[in-house]
Design a protein around this nucleic acid. Sequence first.
RNA 1: CGGGGUGUGGCGCAGCCUGGUAGCGCACCUGGUUUGGGACCAGGGGGUCGGAGGUUCGAAUCCUCUCGCCCCGACCA
Length: 461
Amino acid sequence: MIQSHKVRLRFCHYNHSLYKDYVSMRLSRYFLPTLKETPSEAQIASHRLMLRAGMIRQSSAGIYSWLPLGHRVLMKIQAIVEEEQDAMGAQQILMPTIQPADLWRVSGRYDAYGPEMLRIKDRHDRDMLYGPTNEEQVTEIFHDCVRSYKDLPKMLYHIQWKFRDEVRPRFGIMRGREFLMKDAYSFDLDMTEGRRSYNKFFISYLRTFARLGLKAIPMAADSGPIGGDMSHEFLVLAETGESEVACHRDLLEMDWSDKPIDYEADLQPLVDSFTAKYAATDEKRDAEQEAALGDDLVTARGIEVGHIFHFGTKYSVPFEANVTTSDGGEVAVSMGSYGIGVSRLVGAIIEAFHDDDGIIWPEVVAPFKVGLINLKVGDETCDGACEGIYNDLTEAGVEVLYDDRDIRAGGKFADMDLIGLPWQIIAGPRGLKNGMVELKSRATGEREEISLEAALSRMAE
RNA sequence: CGGGGUGUGGCGCAGCCUGGUAGCGCACCUGGUUUGGGACCAGGGGGUCGGAGGUUCGAAUCCUCUCGCCCCGACCA
């Protein structure tokens, strides 16, 4: 019943790295506590649907447990983020969630950060904190381990739970206090080299979000103390976005999901082709430029899913993260940091893909590819056909969620639409008499009556 | 952190104003009838009404304090 197949995803936020086979499932055994009614606290679609689809449960304000269905999606998103980070040359590490306050005293941020930082004391009465980010930690590691310009450039990333004690968490996991984030850090000899790293992340982010089925628009962001043009936010357009944004229509048309990128080539022209076009978050909008765009102007609401930033020597100086140069001198390395809100992406994807009946997962992150509905459990023909479909698809490497529960058809349809698997195979006694099943696309709602064999080969493609 | 709201079984809610010992729908369990878009009948289990103090013969209900959660705003991946 449970068989290994080619769908492999990596778990990485545990103590050891391991590969896990994602398997098909029988709904009668699956932990999927769906809700018919909407919990009153959920205001926006993604929050509502994640609770109703049994993906998450709230623990306290802005803190959630991830149930099997939600966890699967989260891990799939994480796996795609990892693949794209690996592809651009970043290396995965894993830093702690709990950090010593002393580390943050070096950069001065222990006092600067304010009540958003969750502060803890250990049994020895030492000041600790639950990390809201990891610049200090990674810079210390770099300081300890790297001496020479010959070791540069380096790009390190990790995917870890972070905590920011938001005054007002909201929108479910979209703005929780605890959240899963990919953050990466680049180390270069100088700003010029730093820009090369920055550009790699810029392009890599376009690919990552495109692969997830999202249109994420890079928009100039406040670049802080360093100034210049080396900070961008990536925003997904969605009705329930937190801020009003505007951009050139052309930026909506980009699709990087299947374009090969040579990360060692000069990426500047590519980056320029995006940054040249107008794109602004609400606080950066410019009425004059927008008027000039005319029909090419698009305004919408946006969800920030990524942020890249070059900050030079802000941390390398206090941590003395220096390298020797080719002429025997010594310089503090030039650094950048690059974030992707992994858990937030789950919400962002749902905001972008849902209807009144439920979620509509893009296939790449769908918890299962196919939902198999047995319309008459207990009927020999139906049970036999469904077992066959279930086993054949699973063996072919297709993830199937088989609704073998002995409940009414309406409940199965409703649950399947709610959890939003891309395809439904509906098998009932009526069609099976002639060897036919229904294949329904969740996205279009289209249903076609096709032979059992055709359904199998279509899904196994 | 300012402003507002809310807390009654797993979920959604009524009861509170006008105190008399807790109710409805869904879900759950049992039996039966049903069975292609969230069935019906009968029976059943589950709640110290967020917590503490007070008023009273008596408090879900009135008073005081407190905690949780949600919404608007400011702030943020």
